[in-house]
Design a binder for these strands. Structure first.
Lengths: 239, 239
DNA sequence: CCGATCAGAGAACACTGTTCTTGACAGTTT
DNA sequence: AAACTGTCAAGAACAGTGTTCTCTGATCGG
């Protein structure tokens, strides 16, 4: 009955259930947060007994890893989608696109954002071999933008020695062959990191409501100004 | 036997046990993180039965609130101590002092930092009436620094319209009488927030190792450069 | 000294993650 | 077609959790 090259009933069922688990788990994550993610609750939603879940997932931590990779990929996809139409645009508008995508995605998926960029889950370390590929996608995008820069804008009031020493601390990282830093100078990398930290700090503050709710009447405009500031830090009036 | 005005055995015991609970709970928090903070474990360490703890603490969340206030005050004290000798120093060096104190404190108390600035604990909202006083101390310090500024440095490459719109989003906040914003203009406030976000993003990235361990050979120098950048954003070459 | 108040103990309930055993079925091999 | 093998799910169990009772003493104010 089944075509000769078919995956087989078994394999197909397994794949179906695996995606189903992911789906339910992500829903639970969104609704109750990472710390409250319960295998039993997921199992209940799937009309399964808790132990049965262990056929598909090695442990709670393993499920968490799955969700982390999923979240990283979701964010990566969102960034790629935003960057697609801007392929030939100036680096600074590409940077702004990344920043605003990060913000939008974070506000839409606060639990996922917390999972990726919030406090680390205690006694859990994400296995690098499974998360790295997805986790570095956005950073890679950022680095390609910085790679085009040979110099860095000179802001009034900067202490040159402090800046140089800070950049020097990234020297070994720049030379690390594992990180594909296509000829970025330490100074540029330090600036790019700072720009990213600025964006990131702003998003975290808004998503986690660290300054309380409703700080700004127009959060979008406020963030646009912040992102604009970040581009000024990284690109100056280049382009 | 007991002096007439003595607090009485009961009251004294209670006070002693209350501080003891705080002490043990903070140790557990530091060792295992907020999510793993267990009332039963704390009780065990105090040679108490779990239910006895409920004479002193209304719930686990209540204990968490206690720890949050403690942490905020600890950070506030650290910042105040760092700022003390710099009373007459330039705002920019006071800003740097706040930034570096935040970083040092965060690295020394990562669990407390995660509690205050990391992902919010699910299904827990810190009761504002108990945390506000301690929670706003550092922000108040920051604002007094910004209050001296009448204008904001003009960075090359900034889009003026974007900046103005972003600042306008803070207009109602500036006018809010509840927040004692001693005459800070929206533009200055927006810049101050950005400077803070930059510092904050850098600290979070380092404490939570979001870019992996050992990004910089000299994290202190790297952070100094970041803080320097933040002062340039906020103060320019003023002072 | 006595009744009111409070501290702590102990048991219980409803949860959690995880492991082990056991029975049923699918897929493959003979 | 029969026998074997690996997979799946169920069920029970263990240790842990937060929380709420009830009950016994100790401490307090009058």
């Amino acid at each position: 009955m089944t075509p000769p090259t078919a995956p087989g009933i078994r394999a197909r069922n397994r794949a179906a259930i695996e995606t189903e688990i992911r789906r339910v788990a992500r829903r639970h994550l969104a609704e109750s947060g990472a710390a409250a993610l319960s295998l039993r609750a997921v199992a209940r939603d799937l009309d399964m007994v808790p132990s049965a879940l262990y056929r598909y997932v090695a442990s709670r931590d393993d499920l968490l890893t799955l969700l982390i990779v999923d979240a990283y990929d979701d964010l990566g996809d969102a960034v790629d989608a935003a960057l697609g139409p801007l392929e030939d645009a100036a680096p600074r508008s590409r940077f702004v696109a990344i920043a605003e995508t990060l913000r939008t995605w974070a506000l839409e998926h606060p639990a996922d954002y917390a999972l990726l960029f919030g406090s680390p889950v205690p006694d859990y370390r994400a296995p690098a071999d499974r998360t790295n590929a997805s986790g570095t996608r956005v950073y890679a995008r950022l680095l390609t933008l910085a790679a085009g820069l040979r110099t860095v804008p000179d802001l009034a009031g900067l202490d040159e020695a402090t800046q140089l020493e800070g950049a020097a601390a990234l020297d070994t990282l720049v030379r690390d062959p594992q990180v594909a830093l296509t000829g970025v100078t330490p100074l540029v990398l330090q600036r790019a990191l700072a720009a990213w930290h600025l964006v990131h700090g702003a998003v975290t503050s808004e998503v986690f409501e660290q300054l309380g709710p409703d700080v700004a009447t127009d959060p979008v405009a406020l963030f646009a100004a912040t992102a604009d500031l970040a581009t000024a830090v990284l690109f100056g009036d280049a382009d």
